[in-house]
Amino acid sequence: MSQAEETLVQEIRRVREGLLKSSEVEAAGKESRPAIRFSTLRFGEVEIAADKVIRFPWGLIGFGEAQRFVMIDHPTGGPFVWLQAVDCPNLAFVIADPADFFDNYQVPVTPEELQSLRLKEVKDGLVLVVVAVQREPRMLTANLQGPILVNPDERIGRQLVLQVPGYTTRHPISIEKRSGKEAGGPEC
């Protein structure tokens, strides 16, 4: 694991553990590193080190205009992280590490996709899934067909489109009876 990747993994972990409180986000911005400040619907005014920004040159599918994102912890902790658009205050996605919910989730990536993210191999990248949280009825689904692949060294990301049988855009995550991980569809 490269150092940058380790840093990003730690960042996700720290973010997930809820340790990166907004005060720390503020503190990070006050270091000598250049910081950016922007407003968000869900988290208010956010100040964060500029090098924490992850660029999505193609946006997320259907949201091409938002190309800069940062990861923000969910305030009450848990396995979820928000991917907040820097330039669109309202736009944020809940993302998660698929390994937390699905065993053996495989992401086949084309050489062109790897090249576009300047990755040599998939394992050099970080795979994340977008989670949709619906309240009534309460339903949690993960988009296994459109995972996000991030190059942690370059901090550049892209949403992929997979053609894998059994991977759907709305794969249910059961939270009511979560004793260990679940199988993620017939193939995973």
């Binding site: 599918i61 989670v131 949709a132 619906q134 988009n143 067909q145 949403q159």
Partner: peptide, 12 residues
């Protein structure tokens, strides 16, 4: 399908 899923997810 992925665009629709993203639109739904953005409503979280």
């Amino acid at each position: 399908a992925i665009k629709k899923a993203n639109l739904e997810a953005a409503e979280s």
